[in-house]
């Protein structure tokens, strides 16, 4: 457990030699000991391909490598922080919500809403949200930011979950996603707006939803 929740908005990370962390630039609140922060464009082991992927996706949130020996406090803008532990599965999360994560996790980029086909394209272009999302895979912990904290909603084969794209934070598990609309939804929010679609998640896993429709 490299991340210890000090309160709902601050996590403490122990930095030990040989186990580096990645964090979003500007997320460091304070540190003690010999800790080096180095800007990193590649982040993770995703390499060139994922870097290009992020560039295309507009998911190029600057990351820093955090190495050395000491203690670091992370937090950002008073946002609530949720620590998610991964044990072999994949977390899908938008890059600008990543506060910090362990270097043991493999980072990649993934097209969100791919099963949505043309609708997916429409959503991304209309709402200006990333079509791509960052994936973190393997064993390790991730600290994710959300406006007003998150709730975790289980996704089970018999109960797909629909999420307002603005409130979507992350999901994990064997979950398929597509863009859909509920009865009456498009008439209500207006066809022209990006909010006309909802993210439908089906399969088995869980989705994290924040208590706000505001993007970070």
């Amino acid at each position: 457990m490299p991340f210890r929740e000090i309160n709902s908005k601050v996590v403490e990370a122990a930095v030990v030699p040989g186990r580096r962390l990645f964090s979003q630039r500007g997320a460091m609140l304070a540190y003690r000991g010999e800790v080096a922060f180095t800007p990193s464009t590649t982040g993770g082991q995703g390499g060139l391909r994922s870097m290009i992927g992020r560039r295309v996706a507009g998911e190029d949130t600057p990351l820093m490598t955090v190495e050395g020996s000491g203690t670091v406090l992370f937090g950002h803008g008073g946002h609530h922080i949720q620590v998610i532990d991964l044990s072999g599965d994949t977390l899908y999360v938008e890059a600008d919500r990543l506060l910090a994560f362990e270097g043991t996790l493999e980072q990649g980029t993934m097209f969100l809403g791919s099963q949505g086909g043309v609708m997916g394209m429409v959503r991304g272009q209309v709402s200006g949200q990333g079509l791509f999302t960052t994936t973190l895979k393997g064993h390790g912990s991730v600290a994710v930011m959300a406006h007003g904290g998150v709730i975790e909603i289980p996704v089970t084969p018999r109960r797909p979950v629909h999420v307002d794209p603005q409130a979507y934070v992350a999901h994990h598990g064997e979950v398929r996603n597509k863009l859909s609309t509920a009865l009456g939804w498009r008439d209500m929010v207006g066809r022209g707006s990006g909010e006309a679609f909802q993210l439908e998640l089906s399969g088995s896993g869980a989705v994290f939803v924040q208590a706000s429709e505001e993007k970070l």
């Binding site: 109960r159 629909h162 999420v163 307002d164 509920a182 009865l183 009456g184 209500m188 208590a211 429709e213």
Partner: peptide, 16 residues
């Protein structure tokens, strides 16, 4: 309040 739905499961219909 309009726009305050953040998620649902099951079947829902919305009306303004």
């Amino acid at each position: 309040k309009n726009g305050s739905m953040v998620a649902y499961d099951g079947d829902m219909a919305f009306k303004k």
